[in-house]
Design a protein around this nucleic acid. Structure first.
Length: 650
DNA sequence: ATAGGGTTAG
């Protein structure tokens, strides 16, 4: 028997070692394998000697492939070989070897092998993993788990879910890891129904107290827009750790409940929970502050970060972003200067911040300074620079950057770049050139590009081009309420009421809804939210009284309601009434009511501020002698003494 | 024996 075994192994060994060039290329693995094979022979001492004869000694010393303990068996040895594999070709060799020796059916060996193929960085190859997995007659739970996990990170995650289901059908004992990987697969493809099924399984398996599983579940509900479900899972968690809180916060941010997200910062630290926010919490909350223009809250987070020594560059860059979006460039710059090792992201954050606030030339200077510091701009840096040019009306400079980008830096323009340039030309009134540029794009123009030009048509009252653009959008099946609103704007500016009625009818038929305007204002770290005609605030009555008073004051100072901002076909008196209660005005009125004279007011709006509100704000800043900082979708407007930082509207 | 959850910095 031993003789047969020895003969068999030595044969394998010979076949394994035959090609000389392989020995040169992969000495370590071959030597190791040689040892491994020989160790299974009946007389190990002899085997080692034999191996030394087969494999030149210098290789042995060079690669420190010392003979391992004789007590270890072949399988363990092969595992150590598997662990040392660094190349795909070696992987194939070992694969062939374990097939030949039937080691492939050894659960430990196959698990190690699959792990390397399925999950380990450079060797990762899902197809190979699938092929290998298919060769196992009786896969263990671990092998299944590893395979599901492999699928979940591959580009066919649905397979992970199917395998999980298959595993359950076959009656395997499911452990939390299986379900966790299955959820990951579902998250990747936003497969809510799959997530719900796994949720049911988790309850059936009795894993409903596993925090890690429950956070994964929250995440899938969150990513599929099921905020309430995510909250329910959170509420039922026996132990809520920081990660769970972070998932809840990111869920709120993702699902437009930014204000609730901010509130959690205090709730999580409160008496009953006593959970410490970590660096991820800070990062998420800074994003929320940036959304809401909540400077004071952002400063509070900043203070908390300093207190706890959270100063990773990711957080610095988030701070720069938050301060810029809140219109607080001094602070953004302060953080930027204090950031050691400024990388391309830090520079881009600063450049975009300057651009957003209307400091086009400063943004360009920063761009040049960045290059002097030897930091190479990337595509996003150019998005910042180009938007700086478009916001500041620097047409020639913008076009020059656009050309340099591809010629000098080899960056192919993407939709954002084209968007900026179309915006640049559009604002400058060169609409036809902008149209030509879009038509000449190598990549198919997307709806955003068309929408940008549509916005320019609205500014310049170019109705016929606007109609053509709507057709392009319809062709892309991408028309949104906002597009029709712009078209409506154009028609109503041109008093084409029949067309207005036509478009309204179309919108109603296709049940296209307009996004309601919503403004927020932060006072003492508390964010107050208003929608148009909002009457839900507890100081509602006072707010409307104050707004009426402000309107009266501004009229004395020469403010005239810009009626073209209202789309409805109403008589002028009715229009005035509707325009008077736009959400940004309500927020400003509340600000006046609740702060001492002279306090800067900061308002954020989810849409673009309309022409009438823009005029209102200018005159307000002068009559009430207050600085007013208003952030809409992508710009920060600074109002002071009757002027706006943006010289013209938009 | 697998080694599991949150950040997608601009």
């Amino acid at each position: 028997m031993t003789a047969v075994l020895r003969k068999h192994n030595l044969c394998s060994l010979r076949s394994f070692l035959t090609p000389q060039h392989n020995l040169r290329l992969y000495p370590r693995i071959l030597i190791a394998s040689a040892y491994g094979l020989l160790h299974t022979a009946a007389e190990p001492q002899h085997s080692v000697e034999a191996a030394k004869k087969l494999v030149p000694c210098e290789h042995l010393e060079q690669n420190q492939a010392k003979p391992i303990s004789l007590a270890q068996n072949h399988g363990e040895f092969v595992i150590s070989v598997i662990k040392s594999i660094t190349l795909k070709t070696q992987l194939a060799q070992v694969h062939a070897h374990i097939l030949r020796t039937s080691l492939v059916q050894d659960p430990k060996v196959s698990l190690h092998f699959l792990t390397r193929v399925a999950l380990s960085g450079p060797l990762q190859d899902t197809n190979y993993a699938r092929y290998f997995f298919g060769q196992i007659s009786y896969p263990s739970v671990y092998l299944y788990n590893t395979m599901i996990r492999a699928y979940s990170v591959s580009n066919s995650p649905e397979q992970g879910f199917y395998l999980y289901r298959d595993m359950r059908r076959r009656g395997f004992c499911i452990d939390p890891l299986s379900s966790s990987s299955a959820i990951k697969s579902c998250i990747k493809i936003q497969y809510l129904l799959g997530g719900v099924q796994v949720h049911g399984c988790i309850l059936k398996d009795g894993h409903q107290s596993d925090s890690l599983l429950l956070t994964a579940l929250m995440d899938i509900y969150s990513q599929c827009g099921k905020c309430d479900e995510a909250c329910k899972v959170f509420d039922e968690m026996p132990q809520k750790d920081t990660v769970a809180w972070n998932v809840l916060i990111s869920c709120y941010i993702r699902n437009n409940r930014t204000r609730d997200a901010l509130n959690l910062f205090h709730v999580m630290q409160s008496g009953s929970y006593k959970c410490q926010p970590d660096d991820v919490t800070c990062l998420l909350l800074l994003q929320a502050c940036a959304h809401l223009n909540a400077l004071e809250f952002g400063e509070r987070i900043h203070g908390y970060m300093l207190e706890h020594g959270y100063c990773a560059s990711k957080l610095s860059n988030s701070l720069i972003y938050m301060y810029s979006r809140c219109g607080c460039l001094d602070k953004a710059y302060e953080v930027f200067i204090a950031t050691t090792n400024k990388d391309v992201v830090s520079w881009t954050a600063m450049i975009s911040g300057l651009a957003m606030n209307g400091y086009g030339r400063a943004a360009i200077e920063a761009f040049e300074e960045m290059q002097r510091m030897g930091i190479r701009p990337d595509d996003q840096t150019f998005t910042g620079v180009l938007s700086a040019c478009s916001h500041s009306g620097l047409v020639d400079a913008g076009m020059a950057f656009f050309h340099r980008m591809s010629e000098e830096f080899g960056i192919t323009p993407n939709v954002h770049h084209y968007g900026c340039v179309v915006d640049l030309l559009g604002r400058a009134g060169v609409l036809d050139q902008a149209y030509q540029l879009i038509m000449s794009m190598v990549v198919k123009p997307d709806s955003t590009i068309w929408r940008t030009l549509l916005g320019a048509c609205r500014i310049h009252g170019h109705v016929s081009l606007g109609e053509r653009i709507i057709e392009h959008l319809i062709e892309l099946k991408a028309q949104e309420a906002g597009d029709y609103v712009l078209l409506l704007n154009m028609y109503s500016s041109a008093s084409q009421w029949e067309k207005v009625a036509e478009v309204r009818k179309l919108m109603k038929e296709e049940s296209i809804q307009t996004t309601p305007g919503c403004s927020t204002i932060e006072l003492k770290g508390v964010v107050h939210e208003f929608v148009v005609d909002d009457t839900s605030h507890r100081r509602n009555k006072e707010i409307y009284q104050m707004l009426d008073e402000i309107n009266a004051q501004l009229k004395i100072a020469g403010y005239v309601v810009e009626l073209s901002s209202e789309l409805h076909k109403l008589d002028d008196k009715e229009k005035q009434y509707v325009l008077a209660y736009h959400s940004e005005k309500l927020a400003i009125a509340f600000g006046v009511l609740a702060t001492p004279p002279g306090t800067t007011l900061r308002v954020a709006n989810n849409l673009r501020v309309c022409v009438d509100c823009h005029n209102f704000m200018k005159i307000f800043s002068w009559v009430y002698n207050r600085d007013l900082i208003v952030r809409d979708r992508n710009r920060v407007h600074h109002f002071r003494g009757g002027h706006c930082s943006c010289s013209d509207y938009w």
